[in-house]
């Protein structure tokens, strides 16, 4: 590789390696989930039924839509359509905010029912239930942090598209941020069935 050309393949390789680390980070949470599910199947079942399927399903749709917008923004910038790119990035960020708002509603409802980490209700209840909700807050919280980071990155790339630092000829940064966003989406695609559907 000559040092004068920009190595877009290399940039994407680096991003994929970073995505591996994210998968392994969440992998720790999923391992705990699988171990404790085997240990407390009944309590996990009861816990899962207390989660609100409407909130969870809506958020899945919202996040998938945001991923669609993100993917379309890459196509748009490659075609040189700056306005369309910015609109689609705006759509992605908008969906992310809706996701976070719904998550807020969902968590508030749980808090209202006395279900939050270290709450008297959970301490008094069976151990498995406390573990289930501990994991629920851990997984959704960690994922929520990633949604926030992803939104900030999206906003940052939008600024760079606006300033035409990123354009049809050089857009690997946008592509990488989109890759990150798909990962955030993908993690949710696993969290949703594991916590809301199968239990």
């Amino acid at each position: 590789m000559s040092h004068l050309e920009k190595d877009t393949f290399g940039a994407k390789l680096g991003m994929w390696l970073f995505l591996f680390t994210e998968i392994l980070l969440f992998g720790g949470v999923f391992i705990l989930y699988s171990v404790y599910l085997t240990r407390y199947p009944k309590e996990f079942g009861l816990g899962g039924k207390q989660l609100d399927l409407v909130y969870g399903a809506t958020n899945t749709v919202v996040l998938l839509t945001s991923s669609l917008f993100a993917a379309m923004s890459v196509t748009a910038i490659k075609r040189g359509a700056k306005t369309a790119t910015l609109t689609l990035l705006g759509g992605t960020i908008g969906c992310a905010l809706i996701f976070l708002f719904i998550k807020y509603l969902e968590w508030s409802a749980k808090f209202h029912h006395g279900i939050y980490p270290n709450s008297p209700k959970l301490i008094a209840g069976p151990p498995g239930e406390s573990i289930f909700f501990g994991l629920y807050y851990l997984a959704t919280g960690l994922h929520g942090i990633h949604v926030i980071i992803g939104s900030v990155l999206m906003a940052w790339t939008a600024v760079m598209v606006q300033r035409e630092v990123l354009h049809a000829g050089d857009n690997v940064t946008l592509e990488n941020v989109t890759l990150y966003w798909h990962l955030v989406d993908l993690v949710w695609i696993f969290i949703f069935p594991l916590y809301y559907l199968i239990l």
Binding site: L32, P117, N118, P126, P127, G128, G134, Y137, L138
Partner: peptide
Amino acid sequence: LGLGLFDPSRGG
């Protein structure tokens, strides 16, 4: 936060 994931008294 006291999640209790490693705390035996809480099932961890």
